[in-house]
């Protein structure tokens, strides 16, 4: 079986170098604007930074994928088209796209530029995946984080493109690219602005009793007792009240960690493993990438290497997420 490809995030040139130096086969990144789904303040790459990043990655035998995975604004597709054009001109190894209009544009204008389907396209079944392959010659699909391992295995019997799956990091609990919760609360959405629960709408408020409240826009997302580990108020990760009961209704403050399932994923037919976290620091990148490098290398010798990445995990707890059916 072919060795699994390790696809790692970078939000800055420093993070890119950290990822490559820690053993990433591929680094994925985006331009510093709304064309990518991690459009966070102070993050992402200018054109010259991408050029240098490609050079650095090449010198160490690593690849660069450019994420252009938001949905272009009606009446203003230019920034998105230019992102594809520039990525092609600079020589990225693939573009990661979500929008059908963009796939069409890239296939027409840059037929030789390798196209991957972003998780934001939420292609969760064979008919959808085969459509993207037939219509736009997509070479790889990043699977949405809604499928169990047996479902991934069954899916592979009906498709012939490569798949890439998330193995670590923040976990969208909704089908990706099909969630408007953020814009309902803040006006800004992952699909159009490339942000979820944007920092400009986040407030942390200390209460008199030492507890802390996190708010997003006009809504309280969570409250933490003194000393309790606190999360960023991503709105699906908050504590809410339904039927008179308070709970983490959508998802507990946990990170995905599928390190113990790498062999299963490989047997299911997966080609590449993806680490989430372009918005995280280079220390996180280095730690997580090294850990997964060891795990993937360990698979060669038949030794499954468990990692302990609890400290960098959100809420400092981990989950196998949707890969296990009980998550549903």
């Amino acid at each position: 079986m072919k060795k699994l490809e390790l696809v790692c995030p970078a939000g800055t040139p420093a993070a890119l170098r950290a990822a490559v130096d820690s053993g990433a086969d591929t680094v994925y990144l985006g331009f510093r604007d709304a064309t990518n789904a991690r459009n966070f303040p102070g993050l992402n790459f200018s054109r010259p930074e991408l050029e240098q990043g490609i050079e650095y990655a090449r010198s160490k035998g690593a690849h660069i994928y450019l994420a252009i995975n938001t949905f272009p604004t009606a009446g203003d597709p230019e920034p998105w088209h230019k992102a594809v054009d520039d990525g092609a001109a600079l020589g990225v190894d693939a573009v990661i796209l979500a929008d059908i209009g963009m796939l069409d544009y890239a296939a027409q204008n840059h037929p030789d530029l390798r196209r991957h389907l972003s998780v934001q396209a939420s292609a969760s079944n064979p008919e959808a995946i085969n459509f993207y392959q037939d219509a736009f010659d997509v070479k790889r699909v990043v699977l949405p984080r809604v499928l169990t391992v047996p479902e991934i295995k069954a899916l592979h019997k009906e498709i012939s493109v490569e798949t890439e799956v998330f193995v670590f990091g923040g976990l969208c609990v909704m089908a990706e690219g099909r969630c408007s919760l953020s814009s309902y609360v803040t006006g800004q959405s992952p699909n159009t602005n490339g942000v979820c629960s944007p920092a400009c709408d986040v407030r942390y408020e200390d209460e008199d009793d030492g507890s802390m409240v996190s708010r997003l826009g006009d809504f309280t997302i969570n409250a933490f007792a003194p000393g309790e580990a606190a999360g960023y108020p991503t709105l699906c990760k908050g504590r809410f009240v339904a039927n008179g009961e308070t709970s983490y209704l959508f998802e507990d403050p946990v990170s995905l960690n599928a390190a113990s399932m790498l062999s299963e994923l490989q047997e299911a037919g997966v080609t590449a493993l993806k680490i989430e976290g372009r918005q995280r620091g280079k220390a996180y990148i280095a730690e997580v990438v090294s850990s997964f490098r060891k795990s993937v290398d360990g698979m060669e010798s038949g030794a499954e290497v468990e990692n302990d990445l609890t400290q960098v995990a959100e809420g400092q707890r981990k989950t196998a997420g949707a890969y296990q059916k009980t998550w549903r």
């Binding site: 309790e228 580990a229 960023y232 280079k282 220390a283 960098v312």
Partner: peptide
């Protein structure tokens, strides 16, 4: 840059 800002904040 030795520690991750998110991780630090999660631990409060």
């Amino acid at each position: 840059g030795r520690m991750d800002g998110d991780a630090l904040f999660f631990s409060r």
